Amino acid sequence: MPQRLYIDVHVIQTVPPANLNRDDQGNPKEAIYGGVRRSRVSSQAWKRATRRHFDDQVPTPDRATRTKRITHELATRIARTSGLDRDGADRIATALLAQLGLSQGKKAGDTAYLLFYGNAQLDAAAALVADKATELAALDDKALGEAVKELPVADTFHSGHPVAVALFGRMVADIPKLNVDAAVQVAHALSTHETQLEFDYFTAVDDQNEKDETGAGMIGTIGFNSATLYRYATVGLAQLIDNLGGDSEAALDALDRFVDSFALSAPTGYQNAFAHRTRPSLVAVVVRTDQPVNLVSAYEQPIASEAGIQANSARRLAEEHLTATQIWGDQPLYAATSHTFTSREPATKDTAEALTHAFGSPVAFAELRSTLRTRLTASLGAGA
């Protein structure tokens, strides 16, 4: 196995009028890049969308949860498995989690920060007291704390990470032993062109208005824009394998599902108002052995609005990839793309040819994923 193995995922996706990810004013997030204002979707927003899509594909025990209410969740499991009343289960859960040294939040029972853990990990913590919960609940708080002091609560969070935690990591600033280094990095999505913030002025009519009553029952505005976005993420395969206890097959499964979920997910902000879900027009994967490479520099000079933004964005990506490989002498282990551009159409002929030159002949998305796995399996076997 190469010492370094990174899987870069590049996506071009056009989104219609939408407000995917709002700022503190309720408007779509933006950024200045290349001297002009761009539409932006934060990495956190798209990571959460990816995680939710990811979790929909796996059984409940294999899912991960990020919450301040870990004490409540643990107590629920203890009550379910032991038959204890809620008060007794809450006291045991509090005593168990006290060993982790989690800072307490303002609300009783909450932690001061969101903790990312696997359902199976919390099930394992509950199982530590499953056969003695009744006896523990009968103790006073001090005796209860002493009775559970030697139980390996922290160990349940140090291993057996669900795939989502192995991919996205876990950061607990004041308890470094609970940290998990992320195998995934996700960039902020950025429009390949200049955008303008627009506003939708809306009115809502009261259906129960009297016949002689006029006017709206509600008025308001929603900020929106539309954009062709460049999205980028990278996965460090060695870190992912390490996070999953050295299980290469589990890591390849996780990578495959990540590529699928990153490509097909979308933040849900104002989705009922805008119905903004689209598919990418291009997904490219590049396996590198040196370092991850974000190709956003292809759009430092914004695509002109009259040029055909989607096709030109894809062609710019192909050209930037070729330039990077030629100048720096990069030799990716594998590169492939799945896209909607065809050489049969005059408007996209140049784009299709540029993409083929850069990434090879296009393949269906399912084939891109399966071939990626085959290449990585061969590489891991060669390095064994």
Rank of each mutant, 00 (worst) to 15 (best):
G109W: 02
N272L: 10
A164P: 04
T289P: 00
T371Y: 00
H321K: 10
R51D: 03
T340K: 09
R91D: 02
D55S: 12
V41N: 05
A335Y: 05
A250V: 08
S338L: 05
V58P: 07
F202T: 06
P162Y: 05
I219Q: 12
R22L: 09
L333T: 06
G101W: 10
D247L: 08
D123N: 13
F199G: 09
A154D: 11
K132G: 14
S82C: 04
I70S: 03
E146G: 07
A133V: 00
V293Y: 10
S43L: 09
A89Q: 01
R4T: 15
R170Q: 06
S39E: 13
K149D: 12
R38L: 00
L84D: 07
N21Y: 08
V235T: 10
F168K: 00
A284W: 04
L74H: 09
P332I: 04
L20R: 13
D23Q: 08
L190I: 12
Q271T: 14
D8L: 03
A366G: 12
G160I: 04
A95P: 01
P302W: 02
A358C: 05
T268S: 15
D85H: 08
L115P: 03
A311D: 01
D55R: 12
A75S: 12
D256C: 11
F157N: 01
H339C: 05
A364E: 15
I222L: 14
V235Q: 03
L100N: 08
N27M: 13
Y230C: 03
L372H: 04
R4K: 15
G169E: 04
K68I: 05
P346F: 07
P176D: 05
E210A: 14
A31I: 11
D206V: 10
A352G: 11
A189N: 02
V293F: 10
I303H: 07
Y232K: 01
S191N: 09
D200G: 04
A384I: 08
A238R: 15
K349I: 04
N294Y: 12
S191G: 10
D290P: 00
A189Y: 01
E150T: 13
G109H: 02
G34D: 03
H161I: 02
L122V: 07
G329T: 09
L144R: 03
I219Y: 02
S361Q: 13
E150V: 05
A31M: 05
E213P: 05
R77T: 05
A93Y: 00
D90I: 00
L74T: 07
H188W: 14
T192Q: 04
G88A: 10
T348I: 07
S43Q: 14
H188D: 12
V165N: 01
H193I: 01
N294K: 10
Q121E: 08
T337H: 09
A352T: 06
F274G: 02
I303E: 02
V285P: 11
L376R: 00
E353W: 01
V153M: 07
G269M: 04
Y6H: 15
A384G: 08
Y270K: 15
G34K: 06
P280T: 02
D110Q: 14
Q104V: 11
A304N: 11
F262M: 12
Q57M: 13
T156N: 11
S338K: 06
D110P: 01
G145S: 13
P280S: 11
T268R: 13
A216F: 10
P292A: 11
